[in-house]
Amino acid sequence: MDQLTEKIRELASTLLKDGKVDMVIGFADGTLPMTSRPFLATESDKAAQLVWNSFCSLNLTNYITGRKEKIALFAKGCDSRNVVNHIVENKISRDQLHIIGVPCQGMVDKKAILKAVGGEITGLCEEGDKLTVSSSHGDVELNKNDYLRDNCATCTHRNPVIYDELAAPLVEEQTVEEPFADVAAIEKMEPVDKARYFDNLIKDCIRCYACRNACPLCYCPTCFVDESGPQWVGKGQNPTDIQTFHFLRAFHCAGRCTDCGACEAACPMDIHVRAFTRKLNKDALELFGWEAGLDTEKRPPLDTFNPDDPDEFIR
């Protein structure tokens, strides 16, 4: 068992044994290679099921929304930024949380591995940066860093921004030359090509709402797509309705999205849904110098008014 997992179990078990928290939220191993499962431990012997590996892609902040208990939470950089969001947005109080920071070396893109290996993957063994993947075609060794998820490859907040203790030493942050090269490429297109790009992007969407439900920002009691009086958007497979869902969901995340990528990790249809939110993250940075979830004392830019706010668009 790897060192980090061992440490995580030890920390969780101690917290529960000492009665410092009511529950610990972390990840357990999934039943298939390259899967993990958000896991709740309320007793110290359950802590032995906790794990940490490169497939803990989902955002655990999604599981603390509105809870009343005292919670210990394992948090990567992005998870911790969403904890900050939650505190700023009054979804949970800081006193309720014992945050165990897990400095992150990036999570692995399961679909990229599937593509590289071909055939069915029957096992995966992780040692440092080395991934040994067993499949119907035999074993191959891959370097983890070549298969990072997009958002992890361009992440500049691998270390948790808020924590009570750490499960491992802090890591060196990446410097990324052009973090928004993907967005800039779309910005250069003609309107008709942009529209085509987004039409093609969502052509497989089945409106299962996994992106929305995996997102820690999407905690509205009733989502606008579920409203029926008034009904803001049609509920069928009409492409304009699907587009409207993605467009408006993204906009609700403007200035709040931490680019944790949970939406994409959850999508069963392999849709690059971050294409919508990435543009807003770029705008938030360029127009307001803002990155979400870094400071519990600051309110997001679309939540406040400042006389210096950019207003060139108003005539």
Binding site: R207, R212, A214, A266
Partner: peptide, 16 residues
């Protein structure tokens, strides 16, 4: 409760 904890209530299982 234990089975349902991790569920995010998306429609994936039912749609596939």
């Amino acid at each position: 409760d234990e089975i349902a904890f991790s569920c995010i209530n998306c429609g994936t299982c039912t749609f596939v």
